[in-house]
Design a protein around this nucleic acid. Structure first.
Lengths: 356, 356
DNA sequence: CTGAAAGCGCTAACAC
DNA sequence: GTGTTAGCGCTTTCAG
């Protein structure tokens, strides 16, 4: 059984309003887009006709004529990741203010999906692109730059002098995390990675090694466990950790999810956090405040990041970038909570001594 | 310092391709949209010209001409809520398959924001609307139905005979939750609500009362704590719980977040879960498997729900609905994990006896 | 300050 | 099978 007449509502066109108001379509258009340039009386006449008819301009026709879509494409690796969802909120807030709409390009961690969004850009369905991916999506044949659209990279930097970057200070924060752990007396460290191929992971690991060096340690003083930015990566890291004889006591995880997975798993083996092992996460997702114990982590200014990135894109579209907009790097905040603490047994030697 | 020449890439139009291939624009258009109706040789000629020129049709012009936008609006209460994010994934999967794009309408729990999306529908920027809100968004002056667009309600039902509903069996599952707790020997119950004004909350609470009745109890045998669908609602409920003399032992929370908040807070007071109190959540978010103890909860088939809803909308747009599509109600799955267990002290009396 | 008219780039009748 | 042509609904010169 099929239902008919979805299109039953009669469409009001600008010509209808013009007729109703006794003016030309040009005047109606002017009243709606540049009210100042029309006599008050005409203006009122037209507005009355608009109200009476319930006229709403057909946005597709507007787009075709003005060559502006008032839409922006946001390409994100995975929307169910709270980090991206929160950035999107900031983007949305800023864009809405400027009258722009959002078209979501959710890759859902599958790179095949990006082709679709390249085509979307190429077919001019949007006026600009926000990339949370850390790379330029491509098509097989072409990449997104060929659209000629303004593009802004957020969250993960892209090395292209036409693309402004709006990111957080990953590297600095991660370095600081290690120094924080070292300051608590930790001497052996662990690094739970994020998706190994991602730029973000790369930056964080770089910051980690910088921190290790800055605290006077070397490559032999830490272990690294690899895996994507998910809970199970932390669990897998914990499994490996549990098999070690000379376990690290200061663990940094490149995202909160894996920090939480790690902690959950080792606590099942009656390892105490933070008395036996300190763990520090990254992101500051809401859930990190509801774990046991609550997670020490770096909070990313996600909402602000979203707004800043959208703001830069707006400037790019409107052609009024200033040099200071080209590279924005927002600071993180250390949330000192309950999964980090001073080392009780300073190192392997003293551990042996105390247990004799 | 402003950058110029974003539009430097020269736009190729269908006429360019036609000239290049030595055919008319109509033929180019045909090759691209109905290849069967063109001679093989012409087809190849055109495709070669398309390839050489890198032509991509201007989608705005197509939309204007065909009066189809190939976009769908999805209005969601809050995208950072993992439940909606996951539904959106399902929607995306289905819509992508049909060649449709998604325009996100994220209300971010602020009803003022819906006006924008009503206008978007009214100005025909989309071919259909998916509502995760449980109500029809409005504008002050008009509501979304006046767009005449096909609308499907997902997740929360809307009572309108033009709007198909695609939902989960909230009520049945909640009823089952109570019966499950009763089956474990619980005699006093607690209900941690979700946003009191929402349809979903209403359905779940209704199921809860049905369950209470079915298990042979009455309104005096449970307490209800109100609050939105967030962690802190559970915390607040726990505070109230802690002040009670005659505490319930079987708690149902209308979402996992509040279940988790509740458990966290009472464990801080050394109340044991599930030995002293059993808690059962709702949703089955990923986190619920990483809490301590892991949360017993009902898993919603969110991805499937998203797909099903999008599928119904596609059918509506293409005018081939069958009656069975009008109301879809997907079942939930009980995940029996570690926050529920048998009552140790059956009731207040036996509790007194055993502590003497 | 207002109107007439020319398209924006494409598709779909309708002819041939 | 293919070409010609008339719009889709709007904005924006250009005249007046």
């Amino acid at each position: 059984m099929s239902r008919k007449s979805w299109r039953s509502v009669k469409e009001i066109r600008i010509a209808d309003v013009a007729r109703l108001a006794g003016v030309s379509t040009a005047t109606v258009s002017r009243v709606l887009s540049e009210p100042g340039k029309v006599r008050q009386k005409t203006h009122d006449l037209v507005m009355e006709a608009v109200r009476r008819s319930g006229y709403i301009p057909n946005s597709t026709a507007q787009k075709l004529r003005t060559r502006r879509t008032m839409n922006v494409l946001v390409v994100a690796p995975r929307l169910t990741n709270p980090v991206f969802a929160e950035i999107l909120r900031g983007v949305d807030d800023e864009l809405t203010q400027s009258g722009y709409g959002i078209i979501i390009g959710n890759l859902d961690n599958r790179r095949e999906r990006e082709a679709r969004y390249v085509e979307l850009a190429l077919s001019r369905q949007v006026d600009g692109v926000l990339l949370l991916t850390g790379y330029i999506p491509e098509n097989g044949a072409r990449d997104m730059r060929e659209s000629g659209l303004p593009i802004v990279a957020m969250c993960a930097a892209i090395d292209d002098d036409k693309i402004p970057n709006v990111v957080v200070q990953d590297r600095e924060a991660t370095r600081q995390a290690v120094e924080y752990l070292a300051g608590l007396g930790h001497r052996r460290f662990g690094y739970v990675s994020g998706t190994p191929t991602s730029i973000i992971e790369h930056e964080r690991f770089r910051g980690f090694r910088e921190g290790i060096a800055a605290a006077g340690f070397g490559p032999d003083d830490f272990v690294r466990w690899e895996g994507p930015f998910v809970f199970s990566t932390g669990v897998a890291a914990a499994e490996s950790f549990l098999t070690m004889r000379d376990r690290p006591t200061g663990i940094f995880a490149a995202c909160d999810e894996s920090a939480i997975g790690f902690i959950k798993r080792i606590r099942e083996e009656r390892i105490r956090v933070p008395q036996d092992v300190s763990v520090i996460g990254f992101d500051g997702i809401e859930f990190s405040d509801y774990t046991e114990p609550t997670l020490t982590t770096f909070r990313q200014p996600l909402h602000e990041l979203g707004r800043a990135g959208a703001d830069v894109l707006m400037k790019l579209i409107q052609n009024d970038m200033s040099p200071g907009d080209w590279d924005i790097r927002l600071p993180l905040t250390l949330l000192e909570r309950d999964t980090t603490g001073p080392v009780l047994h300073k190192d392997y030697k003293s551990l042996r001594r105390s247990s004799i």
